[in-house]
Design a protein around this nucleic acid. Sequence first.
DNA 1: CACAATTATTAGACAAGGCTAAAAATATGT
DNA 2: ACATATTTTTAGCCTTGTCTAATAATTGTG
Lengths: 227, 227
Amino acid sequence: MYLRGVKELSLTRSEEDHIKAIHTLTRRDGRAATNAISERLSTKASSVTDMLKKLAEKRLLKHEPYYGAKLTLKGEAVALQLVRRHRLWETFLVDRLGFGWDEVHEVAEQMEHVASEKLVDKLEAYLGHPHFDPHGDPIPDKHGRIRQRKTKSLDSCGPGESVRIVAVSETTDGLLRLLDSKGLRIGTTLVVQEVHAFDGSMDVKPKSGSAFSLSKDVSDHLQVEPS
Amino acid sequence: MYLRGVKELSLTRSEEDHIKAIHTLTRRDGRAATNAISERLSTKASSVTDMLKKLAEKRLLKHEPYYGAKLTLKGEAVALQLVRRHRLWETFLVDRLGFGWDEVHEVAEQMEHVASEKLVDKLEAYLGHPHFDPHGDPIPDKHGRIRQRKTKSLDSCGPGESVRIVAVSETTDGLLRLLDSKGLRIGTTLVVQEVHAFDGSMDVKPKSGSAFSLSKDVSDHLQVEPS
DNA sequence: CACAATTATTAGACAAGGCTAAAAATATGT
DNA sequence: ACATATTTTTAGCCTTGTCTAATAATTGTG
Ligand SMILES: [Mn+2]
Ligand SMILES: [Mn+2]
Ligand SMILES: [Mn+2]
Ligand SMILES: [Mn+2]
């Protein structure tokens, strides 16, 4: 996935947010439904339809009315650029400015729209070319390439398994603060003790510390690797 | 000058740019003429008039038709906040990311609109609470207070005077690159050798190095302190 | 001090990006 | 398969920020 032909493009904040939403939804659900986009952007479905028409005109996506939108290569490149900027700024905010990982999303949502290729590249170098953001999400490189990992969600693990937390999906502030309160972060190693069939809750024990319980809602959103 | 009562305010980028332009022009010229504002923002005078009416409604300025605009205390507070953000980001770009001082204005012009008080305060702390930006301009503190200095412009100096460059006014890229090419920067110490009445040009000698000539256009824009 | 030049405002238009309400297309359940 | 529910689009309206052209006010000059 190369990002050529994107440099000269000038998009508004709203256009960029639509493209990013379509990208994210397509990754998650396999498609980007009009309602899903509008919900993500806190707008109405009719506004999204208008925007889809405009972005289709600009060849950033294909819009089959009633059948959803699909980014073109050019649109995908724009989306990856935005994801790159968002995650680099999040990394800056947490690693350098000392923000909590639950406090950075809204600010990064604004900073990702600052348009300057030089800025992004220098920021990346300043941060030491990180491959993952504070939530464990991969940071696309200058060419849009993403380091892939094979992870599974914690709730698919069984008793006895020893795993390391590598990412949090659905990074809502509430979930992140809950993890904070239990001392869980990226890199934490856990051993699964027991899984309760009744509610899907899971007892886990961190390497150092005593065991505690996690609801299925939580274990569902923790991505882990064997360790 | 306190910045209270500004936190809850939400302004668009265009509104903010108008307020900052009025602030800067008032400082420089004693007043903010409609045409001067429009030139600064690359818009038409009629657009500025519309905006002045709107900002007057919001109590950010007083607009006496045909007699110009004057920021209220609230407007002044917003302006100082913007100047603060602009100069802090410029400092970050130069000191941390390694940008040249002639490359940062455009990017800072975008970053100044990222709204987060926490971000600005943490950025300031991260940078070590700087009092001046890369061009020698003072950075307002959290409360809008500016460290005042008594400087004069280089072209008001006479033969024999030894001075230190503390700021560059009118920081256009061209001037900054010219200064770079002559090895002049903030902190450079110069001794005035001779002033030529014919064209106002001035021969100066840096502490280490041989003498050279500066046009009046240049010496005019260098702010210096005795040294 | 009159009148020409300059500066600023008003009037009317338009594009972008939102909205609500109504209509159309697709999906679902019996 | 058909009626109903859901999803999406269309139609029409509004606000913001911009423009051009026309008008009004102020300033500078002889
Ligand atoms: Mn955003
Ligand atoms: Mn993230
Ligand atoms: Mn700006
Ligand atoms: Mn500056």
